[in-house]
Design a protein around this nucleic acid. Sequence first.
DNA 1: GTCTATAAAAAGATAGAC
DNA 2: GTCTATCTTTTTATAGAC
Lengths: 180, 180
Amino acid sequence: MSRPPRARESVLDAFEEILIAGGERAATMDATARAAGVSKGGLLYHFASKEALEAGLIDRLGRLIDADVHEISNAADGAVAHYIRTSVMAGDPLDRAMLAVSRLAQGGSAAASAALHDARERWAGAVRPHMPDEASLNVVLLVSDGLYFNNMLGGAGPHPVLQDADMDALVALLEGLGRG
Amino acid sequence: MSRPPRARESVLDAFEEILIAGGERAATMDATARAAGVSKGGLLYHFASKEALEAGLIDRLGRLIDADVHEISNAADGAVAHYIRTSVMAGDPLDRAMLAVSRLAQGGSAAASAALHDARERWAGAVRPHMPDEASLNVVLLVSDGLYFNNMLGGAGPHPVLQDADMDALVALLEGLGRG
DNA sequence: GTCTATAAAAAGATAGAC
DNA sequence: GTCTATCTTTTTATAGAC
């Protein structure tokens, strides 16, 4: 249980934010250092290379997924509802890490792709016990992926993909699938 | 009906390919020119800036979407089945353009994001007449988005998201939704 | 741990020859 | 239409002071 240095976490936060807002191209060491309020040299003390910086972010995602999978399995409102409703961005640490690591995956990072694949398998494991068959499970997983996809493409659209009422109807429909 | 110069199309093909394989960062003017077999100066004759190159690719996507929306509406195997089955990458020109423009959208290109939002709305328009309500329509759209999302994250996984049999079961389930 | 200074390579773009 | 040469800025990374 090593508590990571404050500056290190600030750098990771800044890197994450720039990846989300501007993509891999915008997320340079320089821009990250500036946003984190440290010098380039300061950043390089904590992360000796760009690759190390990316690895740090991927590690952070892994820790957040651990907590989330546990939460889904114990959700009071039901695993499916909880899983689907939290697939639309609320801006919490997991959402942000997912988005940022997705950007890295798009940039060709094999480690980032592997981390996302791994996350998806662990979510599948948490939801599977609540579904009658694999086809229904696939619908739930793919709808969640679809929500992430829309979040990922950014708020460029005039309105969110789903209104609150649409989300309620969607969850009801998917839970119907869950009851066989 | 202007037929675009061969070299221009080669440049667009190369840019698309590099975006898909390596992301926005890898898709430099230099790399694109090299892959297209022209010099940087040659590329810049056809596309005067990086922005113009991206706009060229977005235009290409728009033309392919036109054709696809028409095809979905007239699909012999049913709109839903056709839409869902073609959401998983076959490597055809539309798949490639979608993937490449998604990379640009991730990089913060507002034009790319707008083009993808527009495509989604047009697909919704083509599928809506075949669904009993908006909740069912949303499931179909989101499953399609989810399939694209998984394609987008690349073949890093040990196996595709869906086996053939899983796809058949998925389509059957979604068509059940379509029948109310 | 954090900084400045600097190197080495790569980026987008211009100019002008052919 | 396509090329080479060149300019400017940005990017990653190193070296070494504090």
